[in-house]
Design a protein around this nucleic acid. Structure first.
Length: 511
RNA sequence: GCCCCCUUCGUCUAGUGGCCCAGGACGUUGGCUUCUCAUGCCGAAAACAGGGGUUCGACUCCCCUAGGGGGUACCA
């Protein structure tokens, strides 16, 4: 083997800062990190910002933050290729002088005139004939090197021993190998990893979010028809004009801020494609790393839940797969939920608190001093940190803003001559008289009432649940009422009785 | 078009010639527990892309076909 096989292992993650870190990039970073750590080597971060038009400091900054959030630390860098032009120019001069490169319309091209072969740690021996290869640009007319030249020079100068990157670079590697040979640099070990695809087989990209938002908007318009109304509501959620929103829906722009506003208004969730999306939607970094690592790698022995420590102990090229993987959000959610459930209650509560403080300011106050009970209740009901506020959104509404689900109202309250409403009316009296507003006492009040009236608990608890929450789903009824508080409970019951007493339907509808 | 790569349940995967009439996980689904939801527990259905070889024996090796991904940029 021609590569540097002795000495310290050095890997690098080399993203181009042209946007936020996406799942594919994160997995590449993770693999490089895990390999370096496994071998007690060094892991370098390097921004490949040789495309002046598309690179931005803002992107670089967000990539840094996302890596940190994921728990991927590096030993050197971040380097920036835009600050290393002298190195590239020196090498280009050498290639020119040695006849490997020539000028062409303001640019410099490298001659590709012989067959190229190399060994990939995952894909094996790769060979390409000279007739398939073309001379390629190594310095653009703007004076910046191309990615190919910069990568080769930097990897050599930084003593990178192992290059781990996405499979889309497999063919590019012929160029890099030829360059390395011409510059008399040792070849690193190349390791290409399979691509992460959407469930439908398309490549994952941030455009997926725009697409999903647009589809949601269009189907809403189909049902409700009023573009102006939708645009107005969306304009309130972002600083875009109503025209900008119309442009987005008509696919004249892909402005993601508009997409997010639409998603907010229509209460749909956009597919996560970037690390910050997973973060803001309440996924745990460890779980995301775990799931990402499993896309293309596995430890064997039917093991699939593990942490970063396990990953760095067990990671190796020999268990990387060759075929592309579809990203399955359901499985990620299930993993995330599984990890949440295993958290000690105190940890979960603290984690939820800081998440809500950051992403839902003002919400926690509405819970008064029942936050811990709220957290406990949603511990086994949540797959993400966002679930408690989403599933329990009725807890955060004003008492006169509860929205009633028509089906639940009919089934639990108005059906059968308003059986549910009747028991609710009497139960309200008992609750009013209950002075110890604790889960235990409230539960007792309810079960006592049910027993006295010869009703199953379900016949009593369900109408009550609908009355206070708007639908038939919530944590155990005693907990639900305590989180809500006595005042809110009674107010909501009162409003519910007023709202629905006029709609009682008979036992037999004859339909 | 040309070149390179890939192909096990719907999805992620285990499997490196006999241990496999193929194992695990998510999802789907039946049941139990139950005030709803959820959790928990017990079951079920579900795959070696197709066709040729090689071999005593092929999911595992070779070839062809089909399907998928990537490259073919003065993007990375």
């Amino acid at each position: 083997m021609s590569g540097p096989t002795t000495g310290q292992v050095i890997t690098r993650f080399a993203p181009s800062p042209t946007g936020a870190l996406h799942v594919g990039g994160a997995r590449t970073a993770l693999f490089n990190w895990a390999f370096a750590r496994h071998h007690d080597g060094k892991f370098i971060l390097r921004f490949e910002d040789t495309d002046q038009n598309r690179s931005s400091d803002q992107s670089a900054q967000s990539i840094l933050e996302d890596l940190q959030w994921l728990g991927i630390d590096f030993d050197q860098g971040p380097f920036r290729q835009s600050e290393r032009l002298n190195h590239y120019n020196q090498h280009i001069d050498r290639l020119l002088a040695d006849g490997y490169a020539y000028e062409d319309g303001g640019a410099i091209r490298f001659r590709m005139n012989s067959d190229v072969a190399f060994d990939d740690a995952v894909y094996g021996h790769i060979e390409v004939k000279a007739r398939e290869l073309e001379d390629f640009v190594i310095r653009k007319a703007d004076g910046f090197p191309t990615f190919h030249l910069a990568v080769v020079v930097d990897d050599a100068l930084m003593n990178v021993t192992h290059v781990i990157r996405g499979q889309e670079h497999l063919t590019n590697t012929t160029k890099h190998v030829a360059l390395q040979d011409a510059l008399a640099y040792a070849r690193p070990v190349f390791t290409h990893t399979p691509t992460i695809l959407n469930p439908d087989g398309s490549k994952m990209s941030k455009r997926d979010k725009a697409k999903a938002a647009r589809e949601a908007a269009r189907s809403w318009l189909k049902a409700h028809g009023d573009l102006e109304d939708l645009a107005k509501q969306c304009a309130q959620k972002c600083d875009k004009s109503m025209d900008a929103i119309a442009d987005f829906i008509e696919k004249r722009t892909d402005d993601i801020e508009v997409g997010q506003a639409i998603a907010k208004v229509l209460e749909v969730s956009l597919p996560e494609t970037e690390i910050e999306d997973f973060r803001s939607n309440g996924y745990l970094p460890d779980v995301l790393c775990n799931y990402l690592a499993l896309l293309g790698w596995s430890p064997g022995n039917d093991v699939e839940r593990f942490d970063l420590t396990f990953l760095k102990e067990h990671f190796g090229f020999d268990r990387i797969n060759k075929s592309n993987a579809h990203f399955d959000r359901e499985k990620l959610r299930a993993f995330n939920g599984g990890t949440i459930r295993q958290l000690p209650p105190g940890d979960w509560s603290a984690m939820l608190r800081s998440y809500m403080l950051e992403s839902r300011p003002g919400q926690i106050e509405k819970l008064d001093d029942h936050f811990t009970l709220f957290a406990d209740c949603y511990h086994e009901r949540s797959q993400t940190l966002d679930d408690p506020t989403r599933l329990g959104k009725a807890f955060f509404m004003g008492n006169d803003q509860v929205e009633y689900d028509a089906k639940a109202v009919k089934k639990q309250l108005t059906r059968s001559n308003g059986e549910g409403l009747n028991s609710l009316r009497q139960l309200a009296l008992q609750l009013d008289a209950c002075n110890d507003w604790s889960p235990k006492a409230v539960d007792e009040t309810i079960t006592t009432f049910a027993d006295k009236n010869g009703l199953g608990l379900g016949r009593v608890a369900q109408p009550l649940r609908v009355a206070v929450m708007g639908n038939a789903v919530s944590p155990p009824i005693g907990d639900t009422l305590v989180i809500l508080g006595k005042v809110a409970t009674l107010e909501r019951i009162g409003r519910c009785l007023r709202l629905h007493s006029g709609n009682i339907s008979p036992r037999h509808t004859g339909g």
